[in-house]
């Protein structure tokens, strides 16, 4: 028990020092805290995801951890941090997964490139297929036209018959 509580005290101390450092730094730039509304906090929280709750954006997440993160955002906003700075901070602290999209760098580019490339490839294949078919069609125009009209006739005949039957 004692060891545990010592650890807690140390973490707390560390946190105080960190927050203190960071507050003093921010303080130097912005002496008076800016009033922050819930909406401002949510606007940023909306774009962040906590590592615990899968796929739940921070602005609607009900857990205690998320409430603390929102409090942290509020604090940062009151010190005049910009949206980008805050997102940057969270990404550095907790990894890229807190961002709604993978940062555009390295392997992550794949996530943005693959779908359009696949679509373009599909479109190209489709276009070539259609051209092939058209070429075939030109070769077989006569045969096709005959088949078509036969099919059409059959249908018309059927329809006529049916109409006659209905009319009775």
């Amino acid at each position: 028990m004692r060891g545990l509580s010592l650890k807690h005290v140390l973490i707390l101390l560390l946190a105080v020092v960190l927050v203190g450092l960071w507050a003093s730094q921010a303080h130097a730039q912005e002496p008076t805290p800016i009033p922050v509304t819930d909406d401002q906090v949510n606007a940023i929280a909306k774009q962040l995801y906590c590592p615990v709750c899968e796929n739940v954006p921070l602005d609607v997440c009900g857990t205690q951890a998320c409430a603390q993160w929102r409090a942290l955002i509020r604090e940062q906003l009151s010190k005049g941090w910009t949206e980008e700075q805050i997102k940057q901070y969270f990404a550095e602290q907790y990894g890229a997964r807190v961002l709604a999209e993978p940062p555009r760098q390295g392997l992550n580019w794949l996530v943005y490139i693959v779908p359009p490339v696949a679509l373009l490839l599909g479109a190209y294949l489709l276009f070539r297929g259609l051209q092939n078919w058209r070429r075939l069609a030109q070769e077989e125009t006569v045969a096709l036209a005959e088949a078509e009209s036969a099919e059409e006739d059959k249908y018309l005949k059927q329809l006529e018959e049916e109409l006659k039957r209905r009319g009775d």
Binding site: P57, G95, A96, R97, L107
Partner: peptide, 22 residues
Amino acid sequence: WGVIFPLLSELVTGQKVTVGPP
């Protein structure tokens, strides 16, 4: 791709990412 990519990213680079609504 959006569903699979986070897994791929973790496998290759060890980095976890979120592919979200945007």
